[in-house]
Structures are given as C-alpha cells and as structure tokens.
Simulated assay, not measured.
Amino acid sequence: MKLHRFFLIVWPSALGAALMEMLVFSVLDPMEIPSVEHALGVTSQGVYTMAFFAFWAAISFACTLTLFLAQPVNGKHAPL
C-alpha cells in the first residue's frame, strides 16, 4: 500500500516536472542568465538537470500535500 502511495506521488510529479521544464526552457535560455555561468560554473545541461529536480521536488510536495489532505477524518470525509 505504501508503494502505491509513493507512485501516486512520484509519477504525476515527474510528468509535471517534464512539462514545466519544457515550458520554462522554451522561453528561457539558461546561459543567458549572467549568474548561472559565473557563480555556479555549470553547463546548460547541468542547469536543465537541476531545474528538473527542483520542479520535481516542488510538484512532489504539492502531490504529497494533496494526498495527505484527501485522507478521511475520523472515518468521514472532511466537509468542504
């Protein structure tokens, strides 16, 4: 059951992170941001990777919170 909940969180958040990455980087080139190349010293592929995992973590948090709030309260659903 816990593995089922894990995949309820991870799978949609991975798809959402991929979609967010496509949307953000279709408009923004990571090497055009001045602080990325000089301060972090990473390549554009590194920026894409870090952004994907940041998006994945944020969306996973939202999915986890949604799954937590959707649980029944004392055997009854919480009133909306």
Rank of each mutant, 00 (worst) to 15 (best):
F61V: 06
A39K: 09
W11F: 12
H77I: 15
L23Y: 13
E37N: 01
L65N: 02
F25G: 00
E21I: 15
A51Q: 04
F55I: 00
L67W: 09
F6R: 06
F52D: 06
V73T: 05
A54M: 12
E21N: 07
T64M: 15
W11G: 00
A57Q: 05
L19R: 10
F52S: 06
G75I: 04
F52N: 06
G75H: 05
S13Y: 04
S44Y: 07
L3Y: 01
V27P: 09
L8R: 04
L80Q: 14
G75S: 05
F25R: 09
A17P: 09
V73S: 05
C63Y: 13
P72R: 15
V47Q: 14
A57I: 02
F6S: 04
P79E: 15
A18I: 01
T66D: 03
Q45R: 04
A58Y: 07
V73I: 07
L65H: 03
L69Q: 08
V42Q: 07
L80I: 15
S35I: 14
T49A: 14
M22H: 15
A54C: 08
G41Q: 03
M1V: 14
R5I: 09
P12W: 11
G41F: 02
F53T: 02
P12G: 12
A51N: 11
I9S: 01
E21R: 10
V47N: 12
W56H: 04
T64N: 08
S26T: 03
L80K: 15
P12C: 13
L8V: 12
A14K: 13
Q71R: 13
H4I: 10
F55T: 01
A17V: 03
L80C: 12
I9P: 00
A17S: 13
M22L: 15
L15E: 03
D29T: 05
V42S: 08
I59A: 11
L80M: 14
H77Q: 13
A18C: 04
L15P: 00
K2G: 03
F55C: 02
F52W: 08
Q45P: 01
L19F: 12
L65T: 05
L28C: 10
F7D: 03
S60V: 02
D29M: 00
M50N: 03
C63V: 09
S44W: 14
G16R: 14
F53R: 06
F68Q: 10
P79F: 11
L15M: 11
A57P: 01
F7L: 07
V10Y: 01
M1Q: 03
